[in-house]
């Protein structure tokens, strides 16, 4: 009995495949929990959706599609262009500086609900000053590598 238990508990790990040992355990736990959740949460939820008591997340909810997808598009463009422009001026941080200015400006304008002259002026000043300040302090003063 004693030896049976100890052989049950004994584990030998081959170094060559040891990178898969722990992930395999996690996969099994994850699969088990997923099934449990499917049965106890998701199925009843879908039944409620079918009966019209609740709506599906995301698709069934009202959303400000312009601002939501606008944000996603802006962020993707921001990240992408930053690297592209940065590559034109290697390791100067100009990619970050100039693309950030455009990004901050566009995102501010997109999120603004009432376009008054004063508000737009503030937004424009902010779009120039904030990235400029960040760039100057970090890239110049602290010598941090920026895109």
């Amino acid at each position: 009995m004693e030896s049976g238990l100890s052989s049950l508990l004994s584990v030998s790990i081959d170094f060559e495949t040891s990178h898969l040992f722990f992930p395999t355990i996690i996969h099994w736990i994850m699969a088990g929990l997923f099934v449990l959740i499917l049965v106890t949460k998701v199925v009843p939820f879908l039944a409620e959706v079918k009966r019209g008591e609740r709506t599906l997340p995301i698709v069934g909810e009202p959303m400000d599609a312009f601002r939501f997808f606008g944000t996603l598009v802006l962020i993707v463009a921001y990240f992408y262009l930053m690297a592209v422009v940065g590559n034109l001026f290697p390791y100067t941080g100009y990619g970050f500086l100039f693309v950030s200015m455009a990004f901050v400006l566009l995102m501010s304008l997109m999120y603004m609900h009432e376009w008054t002259k004063k508000a737009v002026t503030i937004v424009v000043i902010n779009a120039v000053v904030a990235p400029g300040l960040a760039w100057f302090i970090l890239a110049k003063l602290f010598n941090i590598t920026l895109p």
Partner: peptide, 16 residues
Amino acid sequence: FPKTIVGLGSAAMMMS
């Protein structure tokens, strides 16, 4: 590069 990027690039160049 697309035109806009070149534009942006040359603007950046001037600023630099």
